[in-house]
Design a protein around this nucleic acid. Structure first.
Lengths: 212, 212
DNA sequence: GGCGATTATTTAGAAGTGCTAAATATGAAT
DNA sequence: ATTCATATTTAGCACTTCTAAATAATCGCC
């Protein structure tokens, strides 16, 4: 069963890579380079090591990708202010433009997702979040900056079924459709709070989605 | 919203590629080569063009990957019996062993999926199927050999909520947990039957999964 | 204050991915 | 038979990705 699911997800992954190629080809970007660009855009000045971890490649590979981007004038490698060994990767103005333009995937995948009902999207978002959580628990990917796992997240505290959660950072209620998988303002919850929140979050989902 | 979902799926894709590397490294296989091997194993003797389409790469790239596998003695390129221009890619005995061994991903992803409840798995399987259907409708991936889209598939014809569908090929009822995304016995339904089946399949899912 | 261990990054070398464009060979159709 | 289309390969290029080793700077400990 899990094999079938994994195969299906792998299939989507293949499509994603393919789209990334054709999409990036117009701009002279490889998928890896586009990923790095998106990462720097999302996170601001960033270390090489972080890039390597996020992309699940070795530092050597990350170094090559960043060098390629630097050659194209899209990023700059500056010395890190707080560590003489490290570099801080910055976007150049041209890089910022490219990153912006590449960020909008006019993708078949996007269209396919938009075809689904909001309810389906919400369920899928939850399930994808669950998988990502499982992956980061097993060390396959670094900590994802998502609501579940954030110290500001308070799941299922409101009665409104459309917006049962609360974000202490912006101090506002929100619903499943607004769950973030990569939030700018994420701050890691401690182990205890994280576990509690997960329990509360999942219990509710189980009740809603059906049998079993 | 779709952007967030796409980003999440891309994240899972990154993890998948990473795992494929470490998993294949032990056997001296790159992810691409492992994919080709798996494909030949699943489909029997196969054309180069099919490999290229399934992997969403150009024939040139597929040719290189197959050549690498042939160099390692895992596949054989024989002339296709029915077309002098084409080749039929066969597994060698060694290739069959490798394919078998590589097929079992002892992956973080698998573990993460197995952690989910059967109900969640069933829902995810449906949603992944929906996405794949959307992708193939848009030509991003070739026709997937899945139940929805097969001429033998008859969705929601039984009263048993655990096994509402019926497969005319094996003449047996089955449930959401047994839906195939890549079935050996798939035969394409004609456009009309395919559309009808999809309607019937989705209508039921909507009712079950919730609001909207 | 200085030495060794750790960490951040780069380089070298090798195999492979993936592209476009052009070559080769066979099949299909007029 | 000629022409067009299809299946595969080759050549050339840029990049990915690995491992292993080099370089440099920080950290911890005495």
């Amino acid at each position: 069963m899990s094999q079938r699911l994994a195969a299906g997800l792998a299939r989507i992954g293949v499509a994603l890579r393919g789209q990334a190629w054709t999409h990036g080809a117009a701009r002279g970007l490889t998928p890896t380079q586009a990923q790095v660009l998106a990462l720097v855009r999302a996170r601001g000045p960033i270390r090489l090591t972080v890039v390597a971890d996020e992309l699940a490649v070795t530092p050597a590979t990350a170094s090559a990708a960043v060098a390629a981007l630097a050659r194209k004038g899209l990023v700059e490698k500056r010395p890190a202010p707080d560590d003489g060994r490290a570099i801080a990767i910055h976007l150049t103005p041209a890089g910022r433009r490219e990153a912006q333009a590449s960020a909008e995937w006019p993708d078949a995948l996007l269209e396919a997702l938009e075809e689904m009902s909001p309810a389906e999207q919400a369920v899928l978002l939850r399930l994808v979040g669950t998988i990502i959580r499982g992956l980061q628990e097993r060390g396959a990917i670094p900590i994802q900056r998502m609501c579940v796992g954030c110290r500001y997240f308070r799941p299922n505290v409101h009665d409104d079924p459309g917006a049962p959660h609360h974000c202490d950072y912006v101090d506002a209620p929100f619903g499943d459709l607004d769950l973030r998988l990569d939030c700018r303002d994420f701050e890691s919850a401690d182990a205890r709070l994280g576990a509690d929140n997960w329990q509360r979050f999942v219990a509710y989902a189980r009740g809603k989605e059906g049998t079993s």
